[in-house]
């Protein structure tokens, strides 16, 4: 009886398949929607709110790309992925890009055949521990029980760190951040380790955040960034330069409030802003988009700095400082190649 459901869907899927042979950009345009892989729920980075609307730092990147390509920041299908399913989802074409705080590593880039288009958050793995244990350095953690969120590079870094310092620990693998938090607060593990941003976000939700400290050691480099499939350079360029546009916009002082005004006509004093916003040159055309692509991307949630402040910045419950994620001029690592 219900065969029809599948057959009907199969027919639809079959038709969709016919159009799918071309490049990702044409796919996205034909579909009218961007399929963007995000995490299943990490507050500040990607999580649906009470009305089902996805919010967060990674989500903002997806929306910026959708605005640049499709002229509609809401034309995004957010596909929740786990650590296990994210790479297959991208490799099989189920999603067009993955923005799921994924660490850029050699083997993911080379062996798994993905292309990291940049870094949207420089992170590092840290440890959180109750203050009352009186630990001030991760090297004092000999014999501790450590909660780890599985499916990330965290497990490997942790094993390396403890082995290098010749101290022992008991790992407790946990699937979701919420469950790790439950274990940690109940005292089932002494330490919770994940990316420092995640630790800050988790600590912010505690009843008494002051009772817990994040240890000073950052045991790994975790450059998190959006990635696309290997081989489709045209699409990779679009995602890469959308991200760069957000970063450059902050550097150049283009914000969500003034982008419309700045983009109206070319100002001879600011050639780079002109090129970025398409009032001068033909950068958009080179990407296969129109001239206003960056203007639209920036107009969604503003430049990199605005997105940061709105989702994970110091005014939010997560309260992250810019730190490494500041502009290069301010001592951070954000350094967009020039728009030229």
């Amino acid at each position: 009886m219900n065969k029809s459901v599948v057959f009907g869907a199969l027919t639809v899927a079959g038709l969709a398949a016919g159009a799918a042979a071309a490049g990702t950009l044409d796919d996205v345009k034909a579909r009218g929607k961007l399929n963007c892989g995000v995490s299943t729920g990490l507050v500040g980075f990607a999580a649906p709110d009470a009305s089902g609307e996805w919010k967060g730092f990674d989500v903002a990147v997806c929306r910026a790309v959708a605005a640049a390509v499709l002229d509609d920041p809401s034309a995004v299908e957010f596909v929740p992925t786990t650590g296990k399913t994210r790479f297959t989802a991208l490799a099989s074409g189920e999603i067009d890009m993955l923005a799921r705080n994924t660490t850029w590593t050699f083997s993911r880039d080379v062996d798994l055949k993905f292309e990291f288009v940049g870094v949207n958050y420089y992170d590092g793995q840290g440890f959180m521990i109750p203050k009352e244990l009186g630990v001030s350095s991760a090297k004092e953690l000999d014999g501790a029980t450590v909660c780890i969120q599985t499916g990330t590079t965290t497990e490997l870094n942790l094993a390396d760190f403890f082995r290098a310092n010749n101290i022992s620990y008991e790992p407790v693998p946990i699937e979701t951040n919420a469950e790790a938090q439950q274990q940690y607060l109940a005292g089932a593990c002494d330490v919770y380790t994940t990316d420092a941003s995640g630790l800050a976000a988790t600590r912010a939700t505690f009843e008494n955040p002051g009772d817990h400290i994040v240890l000073p050691e950052i045991v790994s480099k975790e450059p998190l960034g959006p990635l696309v499939r290997h081989g489709d350079n045209e699409w990779g360029d679009i995602v890469r330069w959308t991200l760069n546009a957000l970063i450059s916009a902050e550097e150049l002082g283009v914000t969500s409030t003034n982008v419309a005004g700045l983009g109206e006509k070319a100002n001879p004093e600011t050639p780079e802003i002109n090129r970025l916003l398409g009032t001068e040159g033909n950068l958009g055309e080179m990407l296969g988009l129109d001239a206003d692509w960056a203007k639209r991307a920036i107009a969604v949630e503003g430049n990199y700095g605005e997105i940061f402040e709105k989702n994970i910045g110091e005014s939010t419950p997560i309260g992250l400082a810019r730190g490494l994620n500041g502009q290069w001029k301010n001592g951070g690592l954000l350094y967009s190649p020039p728009f030229r």
């Binding site: 942790l158 094993a159 082995r163």
Partner: peptide, 15 residues
Amino acid sequence: AGYDINQRLIEYDSQ
């Protein structure tokens, strides 16, 4: 493997 396992019935470490 590079990762540790909390319960092991045989010898095992991250190497």
